[in-house]
């Protein structure tokens, strides 16, 4: 009797999983067809519905970004390309579209000011996704454990080679774990945001009574420092800091 109940539960779970998957695939097909028919408003609604079914999927975020781009909402398009790259930093299509969408913003995004070395390191740092780094950490760790086991065999042959191998694999482990930890921290503590209003004024304090410092436009990527009620202190890539209304931007963090 007990076994039958367990079997029934398993069957129900399997059925619901298969049903959800086929439902998602059907929804994706409909959304793709709607996008092809240039009905971007409807396609956006369908992709958003799909996002509820399969949350945090980089490909769905990418498609949502495309819909917003076609609807001339550059700020939201940039936001969704950034979300795609937050999950999968190696998403080449999202990288290409983000670079393209950034050409349509009124404010020049000052990323080029980085020097060659920091730009190179940044490119390597974001070259692979967080999950790829997790796999690398696991593989290096397995190799390390195997080498430790080999050392415990008390076999004196190839002693020098084994030591060199151990040192190399320890270094690789340290690098991959540090890399993974840093990327994990950035993933869950991402403070990037994108301006979604067409024009936003920044003030020296949390209110319009303060001195107006500068004006930013839709699509600008900035960093959120702190939030006070309906005002947020943000900083730009060029070092400018100011307070803007919280409703004028959206955060990249998931």
């Amino acid at each position: 009797m007990k076994n039958k109940i367990v079997l029934l539960i398993l069957l129900i779970l399997c059925f619901s999983f298969v049903y959800a998957e086929s439902n998602a695939q059907e929804l994706l097909n409909t959304a793709n067809e709607t996008y092809r028919a240039n009905d971007f408003d409807k396609a956006l609604a369908l992709y958003s519905e799909l996002d509820q079914l399969i949350p945090k999927n980089p490909d769905i975020f990418y498609n949502i970004g495309n819909c917003y781009f076609r609807l001339n909402r550059i700020g939201l398009a940039i936001l969704y390309y950034k979300k795609t790259l937050l999950i999968d930093s190696s998403h080449s299509l999202a990288k290409k579209n983000l670079n393209f969408a950034l050409k349509f913003t009124l404010d020049k995004q000052d990323f080029e000011s980085q020097n060659f070395i920091s730009s190179f390191l940044s490119r390597i740092y974001y070259s692979v996704s967080l999950n790829t780094i997790a796999w690398l950490c696991l593989i290096f760790f397995i190799v390390l454990i195997i080498i430790i086991h080999v050392f415990m065999q008390k076999n004196d042959s190839y002693e020098h080679t084994k030591k060199l191998l151990l040192i190399a694999i320890i270094i690789l482990n340290v690098i991959s774990i540090s890399w993974g930890s840093a990327r994990y921290y950035h993933f869950y503590h991402n403070n990037e945001a994108v301006i979604t209003s067409s024009k936003v004024d920044a003030y020296s304090g949390p209110g319009e009574s303060y001195t107006k410092l500068f004006t930013v436009h839709e699509g600008l990527i900035l960093r959120v420092n702190k939030i006070e009620a309906t005002w947020t202190q943000v900083s730009l890539a060029n070092g400018f800091t100011g307070w803007i209304r919280t409703s004028t931007y959206k955060t990249v963090a998931l």
């Binding site: 998602a24 399969i54 490909d59 579209n97």
Partner: peptide, 11 residues
């Protein structure tokens, strides 16, 4: 911009 992704690589 690039075209939409029609089939999801990882669900």
């Amino acid at each position: 911009i690039g075209f939409i992704i029609t089939s999801l690589s990882k669900e």
